[in-house]
């Protein structure tokens, strides 16, 4: 077993285990911290796939910005109470069964397909910053600029929604 396979298995177990822990913990703050671990595992996968730019952006944007925003909201509003009153176990069971059957169906369908080419790991220049930057600022410069407008509108929207009236 090569080091790459070992790392893949380790990161996969880390991602799936942390995602399960995110679901199972009661406290929202612990949930957020477990989700950060998931994001770090996914960033590890990106590094394994030689998508270095996405790995860094994933850590900065998701673990650094979005999750901190979640933590701010939870802590500022003092939502860390473990109150999920009147547990409906039947609903839990139905959710788990439907989700599990969805996973079964998807896996059974997807494992049938025959894709001959392996995934290139640790090689290929497509994920390097210089290549991505050239593509982003030549072919995709218009969507890039439009996304700045999207951010501006999201910022204004968040302020308008969040302000006290």
């Amino acid at each position: 077993m090569s080091v790459t396979t070992l790392l893949f298995i380790l990161l996969s177990v880390m991602a799936v285990g942390s995602a399960l822990m995110m679901l199972l913990t009661k406290s929202p703050v612990h949930s957020i911290l477990w989700l950060i671990v998931v994001f770090f595992a996914i960033s590890g996968h990106y590094i394994l796939l030689n998508a270095q730019f996405l790995a860094i952006v994933n850590i900065i944007v998701y673990a650094g910005a979005i999750m901190v925003l979640f933590l701010f909201v939870v802590m500022l509003m003092n939502l860390n109470s473990e109150s999920e009153p009147a547990k409906n176990y039947r609903l839990h069971l139905i959710g788990i069964i439907s989700g599990g059957s969805l996973l079964l169906v998807l896996l059974a369908a997807v494992m049938k397909i025959d894709l001959a080419h392996p995934v290139m790991m640790k090689v290929g220049e497509a994920g390097l910053i210089s290549k991505l930057g050239k593509t982003l600022f030549t072919d995709y410069v218009l969507p890039f600029e439009i996304s700045s407008v999207l951010f501006l509108s999201a910022m204004i929207g968040a302020v308008v929604i969040g302000k006290k009236d």
Partner: peptide
């Protein structure tokens, strides 16, 4: 898009 969505959703 996810970052923009999170800011509005949390608001």
């Amino acid at each position: 898009v996810a970052a923009a969505e999170v800011s509005v959703g949390l608001a």
